[in-house]
């Protein structure tokens, strides 16, 4: 299925958010996630299904003021 990851279209074949992160190369990475504008904690990722057209944001630490 096609979803949007950090603003870019990606083809994903994963049943849930945890599996999708694995597929995208962030399996071991320290990241924070939001799906369609809502925060998804680490513990909820395996139980969060994905659908075509979902918007996934994968964030990490960055310089800030």
């Amino acid at each position: 299925m096609k979803i949007d990851v950090n603003g870019s279209p990606r083809e994903i074949d994963a049943a849930n958010l945890a599996a999708a992160l694995e597929q995208l190369g962030w399996g071991e990475a320290r990241v924070a996630t939001a799906l369609n504008g809502r925060f998804v904690p680490v513990s909820a990722r395996p139980g969060t299904p994905l659908s075509t057209g979902d918007r996934l944001e994968v964030l990490a630490a960055m310089q800030g003021g």
Binding site: A32, V58, A60, A61, G64
Partner: peptide, 30 residues
């Protein structure tokens, strides 16, 4: 102060560096 942005592969190194400063961390919603 620090922020969160779309991960481009540099987040972990930056976070490790900031943590090593030994100061209180204040994330922003910039």
């Amino acid at each position: 102060t620090v922020s969160l942005r779309r991960e481009r592969g540099e987040g972990q190194a930056f976070w490790d560096m900031v943590r090593s400063l030994g100061v209180h961390i204040l994330p922003n919603t910039a």
